[in-house]
């Protein structure tokens, strides 16, 4: 089963996603795929904050800032719940880490295919993504390509997902839920 969790910065999406992943895991192994590169003091502080949030919840952390499917090589076989946080870092790493920025299409494919492979292999996949679409600012060409890639990725992931949840001021709002989807299929 796959769940996509969306939210803006400071929306409470991480705390919600962690608790949700834990509630799904019911004793199985639970992995946390971390995508943020630990460059600089602020990134260090953000990572530390997230570690504190997760501590005591039983997560096994795998650092996988790019080529996300490779995280599978570091997981044990058997039932597992996987929380991936977050698509906005992963897409930014894929796009901007080479000598030259990669194009929108290449980033979209890399991320969407990677997530599709994870989804095949794990019992529960919970993916956190970011709403980066509503600040009304026109950025430089590369950043606009990044935003478009993020839009396409989110669209693809929400189609793949069994449920989609938007977290607003810490409150989960159902965008797509399992029950209504299975009702649609029966019709």
């Amino acid at each position: 089963m796959m769940t996509l969790i969306l939210g803006g910065s400071g929306s409470g999406k991480s705390a919600y996603a962690e608790d949700y992943a834990v509630s799904l895991s019911k004793g199985m192994k639970i992995y946390y795929l971390a995508t943020m590169r630990a460059f600089g003091r602020e990134a260090g502080q953000r990572i530390a904050r997230h570690r504190t949030l997760r501590s005591g919840k039983g997560f096994l952390t795998i650092e996988q800032p790019a080529a996300i499917y490779k995280a599978l090589e570091r997981m044990e076989t058997g039932e597992k719940t996987v929380l991936l946080e977050c698509i906005s870092n992963l897409a930014a790493n894929e796009m901007f880490e080479g000598e030259m920025p990669k194009g929108e299409e290449a980033v979209f494919k890399e991320v969407a295919n990677g997530i599709a492979r994870l989804r095949e292999e794990v019992t529960h996949l919970v993916v956190v993504s970011n709403n980066v679409f509503e600040d009304g600012i026109t950025y430089d060409r590369e950043t606009m390509a990044y935003i478009r890639a993020m839009g396409r990725i989110n669209e693809k992931l929400s189609a793949m997902a069994d449920e989609v949840v938007e977290v607003v001021v810490g409150i989960p709002l159902m965008v797509k839920d399992k029950k209504s989807e299975s009702r649609k299929k029966r019709k």
């Binding site: 400071g10 929306s11 709403n131 950025y139």
Partner: peptide, 19 residues
């Protein structure tokens, strides 16, 4: 909070803490 993370540190902190 629904946008690109700002370049300036103050703007980032403002967004995060407001959220």
């Amino acid at each position: 909070g629904n946008g690109i993370i700002p370049v300036e540190k103050f703007e980032r902190e403002y967004r995060e803490r407001t959220g």
